[in-house]
């Protein structure tokens, strides 16, 4: 398992521990199953689940206020993303991925209300058509509530690369929505 600096960020509370153990008891099987779908070995799956647990501990205050159905999705998606990142790390991928820098894409985001007008269903369908990396970035940033630094650490890239990727993803999303509206 990868050493993570989360010990310093550990939350010192007995009820948090009980809460995390309940999460593991309730969703452990689902977590292992999700990890096993992506990882090639059971040992990798175990590592991924451990890493996911650490990531969940870090977000425990967020999890505590989450409704049950969303909590389950959050846990599953966390494991999935941990597994994908783990797999990529094992393959030494992404070291130079998307390292174009801030000039590669414009940060200017004209908020023209396309997203609000399109509706949730249209956005959901549009997200599915995004490149995997951009979809991954959006999911991490807006659903898992990870900071750009945390995503950068997971991807092993600079935070600016994450910012660029998220910005590009949003622009792609708006383009797709715009095209569909015009059609």
């Amino acid at each position: 398992m990868l050493p993570l600096p989360l010990l310093l960020l550990a939350i010192e509370d007995d009820s948090d521990r009980a809460f995390m153990e309940k999460i593991y008891t309730d969703y452990g099987t689902l977590m292992f199953h999700q990890a096993r779908l992506i990882c090639r070995s059971a040992a990798d799956a175990q590592d991924v689940v451990s890493e996911a647990l650490l990531a969940l501990i870090k977000k425990i205050s967020l999890l505590r206020n989450m409704p049950c159905n969303k909590l389950k999705s959050y846990i599953v998606i966390t494991v999935k993303h941990q597994a994908i990142d783990h797999y990529r790390r094992l393959r030494h991928e992404d070291v130079t991925w998307d390292e174009e820098g801030p000039d590669a894409v414009s940060f200017a985001q004209p908020e023209d209300g396309i997203m609000e007008a399109a509706g949730v269903d249209a956005i959901r369908q549009a997200i599915c058509t995004l490149p995997e990396r951009e979809k991954d970035a959006l999911m991490k940033r807006y659903f898992l509530k990870m900071t750009e630094e945390e995503i950068a650490a997971a991807w092993q890239v600079r935070p600016v690369t994450v910012r660029v990727t998220i910005s590009r993803a949003r622009n792609h999303l708006k383009t797709i929505l715009q095209e569909r509206r015009e059609d």
Binding site: Q34, K70, V76, I77, M115, V120, F143
Partner: peptide, 17 residues
């Protein structure tokens, strides 16, 4: 809106799983 769409996507994936 983006968060809501992503949450629904996550729920969909979880159900499928």
């Amino acid at each position: 809106v983006l968060e809501q769409a992503l949450a629904e996507l996550a729920a969909q994936e979880t159900r499928a799983l």
